[in-house]
Design a binder for these strands. Sequence first.
DNA 1: TTCAAATGTCTCAAAAATGAGAAATATTTT
DNA 2: AAAATATTTCTCATTTTTGAGACATTTGAA
Lengths: 189, 189
Amino acid sequence: METTQQKIIDAAIEVFNVDLSANLEVVADHAQVTRRTLHRYFKDRAQLMEACQTEMQGKCRSAMMAAIKSSTDPLAQLEQMLYAGIDCGSKYAFLDKLQQHPPYRQMPDTPEGEFDEIKKQWFAIVTGLQKTGIISAELTPAWIFVLFGGMVTTTINALGSGNVARNDIKRFALFSFSRSIGIHTNTNE
Amino acid sequence: METTQQKIIDAAIEVFNVDLSANLEVVADHAQVTRRTLHRYFKDRAQLMEACQTEMQGKCRSAMMAAIKSSTDPLAQLEQMLYAGIDCGSKYAFLDKLQQHPPYRQMPDTPEGEFDEIKKQWFAIVTGLQKTGIISAELTPAWIFVLFGGMVTTTINALGSGNVARNDIKRFALFSFSRSIGIHTNTNE
DNA sequence: TTCAAATGTCTCAAAAATGAGAAATATTTT
DNA sequence: AAAATATTTCTCATTTTTGAGACATTTGAA
């Protein structure tokens, strides 16, 4: 079974991903725990946030690493990275969001350093794909990066909307993402 | 010049789009106004929220309407709707977000009714495009709808990241969106 | 069953956010 | 420049959120 501490962290990531300053009562509820219990594990909001950071970084980083190692074909790597992002769900989306806008206030200033390494590899893969003409060179890597994050968020929203079948999601996401970055080969269909 | 009230509403939409429960100080700062002034225009948070709703609904609705009326070609309509969404920026993104997750707490329950009309037309256009085989029938309209909203958010993020030139944004967005929904014709390039 | 750890309940005090009055300033209008 | 309006500053009371102590209750392992 999942440890209570873990339940709280997961709940926090989900809730904060939707509402960055949701109060801790909401997080506790979502974790099906009393606020009192939450406070027993995390001295304060900052500490909980930090735990979220660590969790997100760790999970996403290793999932991305695995994705990269899963193949030497850059296109397959990118596909696996997309799936990794989707599997990490709000972990990835939230992390991505925090990196983008260092929010108007507070937040333990994202140390990020760790994630940067992955990002570097991600860019290497994408520019590689552009150089070999497999994906369009019309788009900039920076745009493609934002697209990537956007696609993960989109899958979360799709799931949450209740109008897209869970089994379709990854297929749809790959279909849409690969086309959106101007892929030139034919994906299976 | 822009009225103070308007400045506050715009600031609120931008801030709340990033952090739904950001405190009013942040909104006031962002609007370059004292919290005291903000409170002179809006009795409380709920009232400010309501004003945001109205603003978002109004602006987005009319922009979407205009987009639809701009042509009888459904593909052109969809393109203009995308641009409308992008121009509305966080107005659209925030509205979209609120419709998706009625957030864990509070919020004047979105009356939405108004926006529903547009949504209906949007779906009509998309299913029409699918019937005529102009866009892939492999994807469901529901997914395409989430994609649409996601693309607007993506443009906001791209802009915010500072790594994508403002002048490229719409072109990139159209390129990526039209391909992501599995368009079969060739767009200009 | 029995003990220990974990969690819930109730309570309370400190801190932060909210909303507003009153007077001082600044801005616009005439 | 005077009047009218809008905004800021400072202040204060209220409410909400936060963090924690003390003790009851549950749960799980021996």
